[in-house]
Simulated scan of single mutants.
Amino acid sequence: MVTLADVARHAGVSASTVSYVLSGKRSISAATRERIQHSIDTLGYRPHAGARALASSRTSILALMMPLRTDLHLPVMLEIAMAVTTTARAHGYDVLLLTGEEGPEAVRRVEGSAIADGMIVMDVELDDPRLPLLRQAERPFVLIGLPGDPAGLDCVDLDFEAAGARCVGHLADLGHTGVAVLGEPPAVYARGTGFAERTLTGLRATAREKGVDLLHRPVEGTYTAVSATLGRIFEERPATSALVVQNEAAVEPLLAVLRRRGRAVPEDVAVVAVCPDQVARQASVPLTAVGVPAAEMGRLAVERLVARLGGQAPSGPTLIAPELTVRESSGSHRDHGGR
């Protein structure tokens, strides 16, 4: 590995002179600077992030705060992270991935050091404890998610409230009046996670508007948990003819439980999901679903952050309109005798 000392020897100058050229702290003659730059190019020297930061006040690194929680579906998180990484590289940035559940401490660590030029923050809660520090930070940031008060913030997200509304509206239009929602694990709601709460708001509002009897049950994504929850749903509301699932891990367990119980999809029970299109398409019964545009969310977040680093002011929330794709899992309640 080529070092700063190697560059100094090749250029015939002291290591401190090379350091001054990299940092810009002292005036160095044009001839010497050119000689040092020639040595850097010839040897293929790459200054570390700290040296680059000294020279330009930039690291060309973006910090991605992606807490890896066991109650969130990892493939979706990773798809967002991959889109962030590839888009960042296209703009000349590398990505520093912070996966710990550090909360405000992670913001302090980035803000108090030269490790990144800006931050992209995921798993946003309605009353997120990181927001007070982020609002005071010198480094720009973009949220993938929508807090309770997004005023003055750059946010990118699917319009989950509209997504919930689309799901119930679709089922109501098919004649279903008894709908149960299999939601995210209980811990997601306990944290006040924005996407889950906003979906529920949209589901409930449209259910009231359409005269739909709506029942919501959080559920872990295991076969055992789904089976137990579904059993309670049918005991409490025997007239339930449609299910909305917002928990990618619960999709296949749900379809397996319905098969075991002898309930055909969609003849006996319609199923609609809020999940990535790949999950919906590859399910054992292809699901009618509002897709979660993970890659688009990651791309837009980077583009917004790069614009902020270029001097652009925050432009507020960007909510992606939900698209519901009808597949094999939803049918008319009237067409099957109202079973």
Rank of each mutant, 00 (worst) to 15 (best):
A11N: 01
F141P: 09
L200R: 14
V290E: 10
V18I: 02
M65C: 11
P322S: 05
T229M: 05
S315R: 13
T224E: 15
A137Y: 05
P186D: 09
T288C: 07
E138K: 12
A15G: 14
R130N: 07
P67F: 07
R261Q: 15
L78H: 09
P147K: 10
V181F: 11
R308Q: 13
V156Q: 02
R89Q: 13
V245T: 10
T99P: 02
V84C: 03
L305K: 05
L287Y: 09
V257Y: 10
E102S: 15
I40F: 03
D154H: 00
V2E: 01
S113N: 05
V181P: 01
Q282R: 13
Y20E: 01
T224Y: 01
S332Q: 05
A294N: 13
G100T: 15
R35L: 03
G183Y: 05
V292K: 06
A307F: 01
Y20P: 00
R26S: 06
G221I: 06
V212S: 04
L98G: 07
R191K: 13
A256T: 15
P253E: 09
S16F: 01
R52P: 02
L200H: 12
R9N: 07
F160N: 15
G145C: 11
S113P: 12
A90D: 14
T229G: 08
S329W: 01
D213L: 11
V95M: 01
A313N: 00
D41A: 14
C275N: 06
C167S: 15
V292Q: 13
R308P: 08
G164L: 11
G112R: 11
S315I: 00
T42D: 13
